[in-house]
Amino acid sequence: MFRTIPMCIACALFLTPLTNAAGSEPQTAASPDAKPQYQWVNVTQSAAYAPRDGAGALVFKDKMWLLGGWNPSDKVHFPMICNNEVWSSRDGATWSLVKPNTFLDKHFDPTRDWEGRHTAGYAVYQDKMWIVGGDANQGHIHNDVWNSTDGKNWNLVNKERDVPWGPRVLHYTFVFQDKIWILGGQTMPGFAEPRKEVFYRDAWTTTDGVKWQQVTPEEPYWSPRGMIGGSVVFKDRIWVLGGGTYDTPTTPTRNFYNDVWSSADGVHWKQHTAAAPWAPRQYHDVAVFDDKMWVMEGYYNQDGGNRNDVWYSADGVHWVEVPDTPWAPRHASSVFVYDNALWMVAGNNMQRDVWKLIRVPGAR
């Protein structure tokens, strides 16, 4: 069954960016005649899906697709902490339930459908949507790979053959040079077996989800990390923008980063800045929009935790902040680049809001 909700009246906020270079102080005000560049539009405050964070966000067949998610306080829609619903939308206001949640209890068969999960690996590749690995909320780490051509019917790609890079969660997933890549991540000994703590600093690639090739970066390169939502492949390079590590019983202090790295092959890396002007963060989202790299929201254990700042850069060194974000601070949102806009959907604010950022017509 498909469920829909009508569009609400959109509201807009015109924004003039404040420019920051790495290590410099932000401008305190824009010039009086500065022309706004971007505009936030509130598409709806009451989307049809239940509030959630960590849901997969893919653009496929001219639609936005929302996959799974986490909300342990909602036992109706998330009876097992996470669910495996799939929603789609062409306009961000009307969302259709393509695949109802089947992850209802311990009798679930994980070979017939994917277990509910959040902050997994998500990609569009070879005309399919892909889910690569998952989380540790069920007392085990997902080592499976699934794909689908319609969002309703899903194929277990690696049945009876766990991925060779497991166990890991919170990995960074993207498509580059006609391959699916995963990078970084960690084990979660406080949540699931194995109880051995590992923070990964490697990468793996595949063309079919079954056979994987390890990529070993050469020094210097990024420190062990994950917790980066979305992906940035820009100017024929992989980009790592911030990220961090989750706490474990052995290492109870999380790491938060705001460094910027890129690579043309996954082996040789360049550090563009050791400290971008945006605060260190994890569970943030990154994207490529309007020929720029974007860093949005996230979590930092200072300055109130959840964030709602939005930054962009054309080179990874010089960053511009879009001020006065109208949506609530959050982390683990679902971000789309779709229909000439950058979309902010759901997240740890646990609301059903949908926003999009558009370029103001005629702006520089």
Rank of each mutant, 00 (worst) to 15 (best):
A287H: 07
A279Q: 12
L18N: 07
V215W: 02
H318M: 06
W40H: 04
S24T: 15
R117P: 02
V157C: 02
D353M: 12
I131C: 02
A21D: 04
I9C: 04
D91M: 03
L241E: 01
V132G: 13
D291W: 03
G244R: 12
M344N: 10
A346S: 15
A10K: 11
M188H: 08
Y246C: 04
V354P: 03
V86N: 03
G92T: 08
A123T: 00
L342F: 11
A287M: 05
D33K: 06
Y246H: 13
D150A: 13
H118F: 06
V41C: 12
A50R: 08
T149C: 01
F108G: 14
Q39N: 09
P329I: 09
A279K: 12
N137M: 11
I81M: 05
W95E: 12
A22G: 06
L18S: 13
C82V: 02
T205W: 10
G244F: 14
R254I: 00
D339L: 00
H171A: 12
G139N: 07
Q186N: 00
L357K: 07
Q138M: 13
G209C: 07
M129L: 09
V215R: 01
R117L: 14
S231L: 05
Q45C: 04
N255A: 12
W222P: 06
D62F: 11
W294N: 02
G230E: 06
A47F: 00
K99Y: 04
V132Q: 06
M80K: 13
I180N: 02
R168F: 04
M129T: 03
Y38P: 02
N153Q: 09
G347H: 03
D290W: 06
P329K: 14
V267D: 02
D105Q: 09
S96P: 07
A48W: 01
R254Q: 14
E160S: 14
S89Y: 03
D236V: 04
W114E: 04
G23D: 01
V198D: 03
L58Y: 02
M350R: 15
R281M: 05
D33W: 15
V132C: 08
P32T: 05
P326Q: 11
T206R: 03
W212Q: 03
K235N: 15
N301F: 04
P164G: 04
